[in-house]
Every structure is written in C-alpha cells, then in structure tokens.
Design a protein around this nucleic acid. Structure first.
Length: 269
DNA sequence: CGAGTGCCCTGACAGC
DNA sequence: TGCTGTCAGGGCACTC
C-alpha cells in the first residue's frame, strides 16, 4: 500500500517532467461519479505548476487557481503508459512528446479530483495533516506534543496522520519495531525517551525506503512501471511467526484499529 | 471532541 | 473445475 516513500518516489518522477505542461483534457475513464473524482474536468486547459506532496496526497497546483489532488489509496498507480485495464482517469498533456498520464486503480480506493487551491473541505485528513517527517523541522518534541493528544493505541494514533504525516500500516509496524514500542501502548503514555526513539525510527525507515524507491508488495509501481525494492528490508510487516531479527523470538500478529499488526512480543514493550 | 466501527472495492488464495 | 469464504486496508461517515 502506497505510503510516504512510495508517494514521494512518484512525486519525484512526475516533478521531473510535468511542471509547465498544459492539461489539454482531463477525463474520467470507468470511474465512479462522486467525490473521489470531483470536478476533474475543471483541470482541462490549466497548466501544471508543480508537483507537491502532503503525507500520502499528491498536490498539483494548476494555473487557473485550482489544485489537482491525487491519492493512490490501496492500488492506485500513476503511469505514463496505458495500463490497459482498471484505468479510472486520464490526462492528455501538451508538449511534443505526446506523453499522457494514466491513473489506474483496481480497487477504487484512490482519488483523483480537483479543488480550489488549498480548500480541503471534503478532505478532513488532508486538512488536519500532521508535520512532514522528512522535513528538517520535524523533531521529537513535535512528535511528543502530537502523541499527548491521544489515549488511543500508538498504532491507531499514527494511522490518523495527525501526529505525523504519511505513515501507513507497513511503516508504522516497522517504526514501532525499530523503536521497541508495543503497538498497543497508549500514545500519551509514551515517554519522551521513547518518543525520541520513535522519531529516529520513523525518519530512518522512511529515508531508507525512499532510497530503495519504496516497497512493492503487489500493486505499487513507479511511474515507469518499475517496482520498489524495500520489501526485502522489512523487519516486522508481514513477518508474523518468523523470528525477530533482534531477539529471535517469533513475531506476533494482532489486529489493532482494524489493521493487521506484526510486532515482537519480547522486545517491544 | 475523541474513540471505535462499518463501509467501500476487487483480486488472490485456501478449502472443499 | 468451480464455488464460497476470507483477507488485504486508507480514509470517511457515523455513533456513542
């Protein structure tokens, strides 16, 4: 499932060639009507001014004062080649190369919509998005303040995107494993010492995954169709029953916040 | 307002 | 072979 490293990988690829191009036509293809593709046709005729990211959302400011918002959901793939099936939206672009942009999304959890720039009324998670973990200003004190606001299990708290942006099921399990924090620990009970460890774990796992162009488990692909290479470096996610790489104890599996969770019952306390 | 639950959606896979 | 059931989960609507 695309999380920050995957979305940032896609952002960088798009940022290399999209800005400055005009969207000659934006169309829904076999996409449901409704809020996930709201006002997409408004992008037609506008120039793409940049490719930004907040958490797992891609934000493309447009010349007409609008913003194209893309969320990959579970199975969203942005491609510069026609994937053939499950294409939900398509951007025809100006420019001699005739390059186009396809949004493929098998399970339809993704979004591809246009809003007035910065107006996120229908997107409460984006509107309340926490700090960017790879921004140099992100520090343990900020994380601690965010965690203090919640009595929920740390796993659920991080899924909310409020204490920090861009983490999903995979990197939360990885970060908690690295920081040796049990996923059921109430967020506000996490000490400053452990919060500092968690901060370091979040930043390191995201940087390392980004270095590997993200994690491909099944659906995620880069714009050129290549896979991310971080899956082989996962220590927790998907390793239930396998020995912990730190203490050899078999990893446990549990469901927290309706999410499958893997952790070491011995060294995560 | 915070926490918890149901829901969307489709393919992969296990079991019979 | 072909069917059924289960699982995967990000974000939102809704309830308490």
């Amino acid at each position: 499932m695309p999380e920050l490293p995957e979305v940032e990988t896609v952002r960088r690829e798009l940022d290399a060639w999209l800005p400055g191009r005009r969207i000659t036509r934006a169309v829904r293809v076999d996409a449901p009507r409704g809020p996930k593709y709201a006002r997409l046709q408004r992008a037609s005729g506008q120039r793409i001014e940049g490719v930004d990211r907040r958490g797992k959302f891609l934000l493309l400011p447009l010349s007409g004062g609008d913003e194209l918002i893309v969320h990959l959901g579970m199975t969203g793939v942005i491609s510069d080649r026609d994937p053939g099936e499950h294409v939900r939206a398509k951007l025809m672009l100006s420019g001699r190369s005739r390059r186009q942009l396809y949004f493929q999304d098998v399970r339809r959890f993704g979004r591809f919509l246009v809003v007035k720039a910065g107006v996120y009324d229908g997107l409460p998670t984006l509107a309340a998005m926490g700090p960017e973990p790879l921004d140099p200003s992100f520090n343990p004190a900020m994380l601690h303040v965010g965690l203090q606001r919640s009595g929920a299990p740390i796993k659920s708290c991080l899924l909310s995107q409020k204490p920090v942006a861009g983490l999903g099921n995979i990197y939360i399990d990885e970060a908690l494993w690295r920081a040796r924090i049990h996923p059921r620990t109430a967020a506000r009970r996490i000490s400053k010492i452990k919060t500092a460890r968690l901060h370091e774990a979040i930043v390191s796992v995201l940087r390392q995954s980004l270095e590997a162009s993200g994690t491909t488990l099944s659906d995620y692909r880069r714009v050129d169709g290549e896979e991310g290479e971080f899956a082989e470096q996962l220590d927790a996610y998907g390793r239930a029953g396998l020995p912990c790489r730190r203490c050899d104890h078999p990893l446990s599996h549990d469901t927290i916040g309706q999410r499958s969770t893997c952790f070491c019952g011995r060294c995560q306390r």
